[in-house]
Design a protein around this nucleic acid. Structure first.
Lengths: 249, 249
DNA sequence: CGTTTCGTTGATAGTACTCAAGTGGTGTGG
DNA sequence: CCACACCACTTGAGTACTATCAACGAAACG
């Protein structure tokens, strides 16, 4: 049991620290991209166009949370992937599934620029080229981890993994525990974890009964015992490396 | 039913065409990378070192088939991802799961070079920088698609999807149908599709009974009815866009 | 205040996992 | 050449988990 906690120290940050840790990344990006990118604000549930390669568009997330959704024929909606500030999004990164779209899950701000411009800018700036490669590699690792989560974990473990991810990304440490303003609806969570909404409801009920979770109105969630939550998923340590503040610096 | 076949034309190629379509990609890579990369030949089941960022290594697949495997605590081995010729592999692309390793699934040839060198070369060559970005984006799409397959499809559909993928990548068109020399063992396939080996055995028996599959010794597989196989997975059209010869040119 | 939507919960069915026994092929040693 | 052990694959029976369907309750909205 101690092995899990070694690397999975509960390190959600307060808003001030969040702003602080985003600073260096934003400064680096601003230098070259700011002049050529178009700032775009998206409201909740707004879809952003995902064009195909000839006129491909690149998005860079500045704030908020976005996701890729798909609508397989005759099946439920899927939430394939989540994007956080700093992430790079382009059409060719996404499989050509029916109903694929990029959707803002919260009020978000992104930079938009043509793929050709993006590539030209990176080619002209070695430092930023390497940085973009590392960023895309990190996103790839997250996509692979998600496949692993959905493929091998049961419902409870999947949900615990998502809570750990959101806690590390969006959590605020408070006196009673970690508070998360979860930007995903029940349906979103179910679609992301490849679970039925009914099954997810049972899982949340179980978590509440076990004291792992307390819910307020409007998606506000309190996690009283972070360590106990981390112990509920075998991948807490791995999530820590990909979602903890230090990993994105 | 016709909608599936519109884009999923059975287009496995014969060896000659395979060599032909790989040509342009290899030529482009050779120019800059060849001088700085170390050619490495790996035998079947050989593991390649995956170092962490400070001394990170980049591999570029030249021939063969490789995979990322992980050994979650108390669970079965997982095959997280498959890599084909032209793919780019580095440690930071892979989640930090226990027992993570890069393994050659067939006799393979790769180019190895330090991440710093790789980044420097891309920074110096705009054309190759853009090419590498497109390649990594394509790999990302495949990883996301795999998560979708494992998350929403049942056992039969998952297996059919893998057969379509391998048929498009490795298949040879013959008089009796498409022949595939499957380089994966039963265990490999089960671990890749997040299925139990027993369950996979039942699935293959079902496929044989339905006339979708004929097996010879040593992994040689014949698919008599490609269209029927494509109709067995809802993602045939999507697989086509990511694995058909035209997609990798 | 009625209507709609979302979340919850129970009963049931379908799917895959687990364990166990049986089968076939391969390699080794007598 | 045969006997044996060993391994991978197959197949059956029981179990666990999740999906599905339906009913109910609560909150949001007109």
């Amino acid at each position: 049991m101690t092995s899990i906690f070694q690397n999975a120290t509960p390190a959600p940050v307060n808003p001030d620290q969040t702003a602080e840790r985003l600073a260096p990344r934003i400064v680096e990006s601003e230098g070259v991209l700011r002049e050529h990118a178009t700032p775009v604000r998206a409201r909740r549930r707004q879809r952003l166009a995902l064009d195909h390669p000839p006129s491909e568009t690149v998005y860079i997330v500045r704030s908020g949370l976005l996701g890729i959704e798909a609508l397989p024929a005759g099946k439920h909606r899927q939430l394939l992937e989540l994007f956080y500030p700093g992430d790079i999004i382009r059409r060719s990164q996404v499989p050509n599934l029916p109903g694929t779209s990029l959707t803002a899950l919260t009020v978000s701000e992104v930079w938009r620029l043509p793929a050709r411009s993006f590539e030209a800018l990176l080619a002209a700036n070695p430092e930023q080229c390497a940085q973009a490669q590392r960023r895309v590699a990190e996103q790839h690792a997250r996509a692979t981890l998600h496949a692993s989560i959905v493929g091998t974990l049961n419902g409870d473990e999947r949900f615990a993994s998502l809570l750990v991810e959101l806690g590390l990304r969006l959590g605020n440490a408070g006196p009673a525990g970690i508070t998360i303003d979860v930007p995903l609806s029940r349906t979103d969570i179910a679609d992301y974890l490849a679970l039925n909404p009914d099954t997810l409801s049972r899982i949340t009920s179980r978590f509440k009964a076990r004291g792992l979770l307390t819910q307020f109105g409007g998606g506000n969630t309190l996690i009283p015992a972070w360590d106990a939550l981390c112990a509920s998923t075998p991948l807490a340590a791995t999530l820590q490396t990909l979602h903890a503040p230090a990993a994105t610096a």
